[in-house]
Design a protein around this nucleic acid. Sequence first.
RNA 1: UGGGGCGUGGCCAAGCGGCAAGGCACAGGGUUUUGGUCCCUGCAUUCGGAGGUUCGAAUCCUCCCGCCCCAGCCA
Length: 567
Amino acid sequence: MINEKPERTPNFIRNIIIEDLKKGKNDGRVHTRFPPEPNGYLHIGHAKAICIVFGLAQEFNGLCNLRFDDTNPEKEEDEYVRSIIEDVSWLGFDWEDRLFYASDYFEQMYEYAVQLIKKGKAYVCELTSEETREYRGTLTQPGKNSPYRDRTVEENLDLFERMRAGEFPDGSRTLRAKIDMAHPNLNMRDPVMYRIMHASHHRTGDKWCIYPMYDWAHGLEDSIEGITHSICTVEFEDHRPLYDWFLEQLDIFHPQQIEFARLNLNYTVMSKRKLLELVQKGYVSGWDDPRMPTLSGLRRRGFTPESIRNFADMIGVAKRDSIVDVAMLEYSVREDLNKRAPRVMSVLKPLKVVITNYPENQEEELDAINNPEDLSQGTRKVPFSRELYIEQDDFREDPPKKYFRLTPGREVRLRYAYFIKCTDVIKDETTGEIKEIHCTYDPATKGGDAPDGRKVKATLHWVSAAHALDAEVRMYDRLFEVPDPLGNKSGEDFKAYINPNSLEVLKNCKLEPGLKDADSGAHFQFERLGYFCVDKVDSKPGNLVFNRTVPLRDSWAKIEKAMKNKS
RNA sequence: UGGGGCGUGGCCAAGCGGCAAGGCACAGGGUUUUGGUCCCUGCAUUCGGAGGUUCGAAUCCUCCCGCCCCAGCCA
């Protein structure tokens, strides 16, 4: 496949790779990896990382592995590996036959550990975890050596073997690297390499009772797979000296670790812990709630893989902390869906319109364009009849300034149909509520153009009442009403900022009949409203459910808001 | 007050000694059978601050200020 790349914005990682390639480093190979721990669902922040590592591999004709970093059996589950596999492939990336697990390398890692012990660079320590913490010192004070630090190689070998054999209880011993307890970087103060855990692992079962720590394992995994550029987030920068140390001691293939800043989005929270809390306490319906920033949530909401990949390109790659405006994500779906989503007319908050001069039992089929941005999508027939629905927002008895939709006495266009003029407003006598409006139509304007050249200020979408499909539409909005839910000004918990209007369920929506057999997950533009998709979970034939992915840009709403602010 | 990292417009982000890309947002205008899309136009005399080097600095040097990360037998 040809990888046409419309001049991407440079970033520092890409620049490093270009330099490496120039120097002929790694024989010109570029090999990256995405190494999630299978302990939760992937979110948009992971998507950024995935796009970076797979994208770099693609761009430089390299490879990218998917590798589960499953070194902690107490936290990891198969359910997560399944969801991660689904999400990464949904995003559009292919690891071919290179799906790996850190646990596949446990034996090899053990051998490497034995080597370190033999070099006198690792020892079995019997300090408890509390003692280990005390011995580590603090940020400003050096630590002190473990009393077990100077055991003989033979003793260490024996003890380590017995650790593996299961002779010791959990937490009773660790294997530690012998580095420097006074090192200014705490990660270098004799870090733990192995801990004892009599836990069942999702892949290796009960084969092991000692499990490697991240710092020890990760570089080995990268090295074994021949990873050239090991890309991770900035909080691991402090770990790089240790990553390098292990590989140097072992004298094995040495990948280069490069760190970038993780993604933050305003109006949302990203941490696994916080997301989990939202799920567990029922603030959302689950990990795939369309308001969640998880990939499963975004997918259900109607975001496309293309839009997320494009978003990742837009936000770039750097090391500085930043908070990206969700407006960019929203822009990115609109841009994608604008080109692709078929247009359709749907009335979400119906107001009945009776065309009084239209024959009682007549109906006709009008031609509508499926996508003005892509004429190859063709046209369709839309039924028209005497009774229709229009949007409540499209009629105002007392229109404000600059409102140019339907008002008493005013003429507007019904898209692809006719010009209509409002002649009467029928209200409930007691409540004053508008029940329906009466209009007349001009038969000469069929299709939407007046032969006499008469213009109209607005075009409304509509649905024929007799033909309309009923549906439920879920209007999603940002989950939080403040840009930074964690910036608790007054010590409030982030949940205090949840947007009470993040979901509005509309039950009486009227859709154009062609939507009857819409595919699960299919995307549409409801003209003049936004992009919507068929909910994958709850929509059933005869009980349609749509999710609003994102509204269309709405300059009228802005004008109206500006006018309100003035008064 | 130990170590590591980072500071370019409202938000992202290029640039790495030659005189501030691009995108989002925002504001005007044009086109329009979506108040959508699209198309124009505007939007940092300035790059955290102060000195210095240089013909010339966002880019090099010095000092200062601010923000983030690290004391899991988590990743």
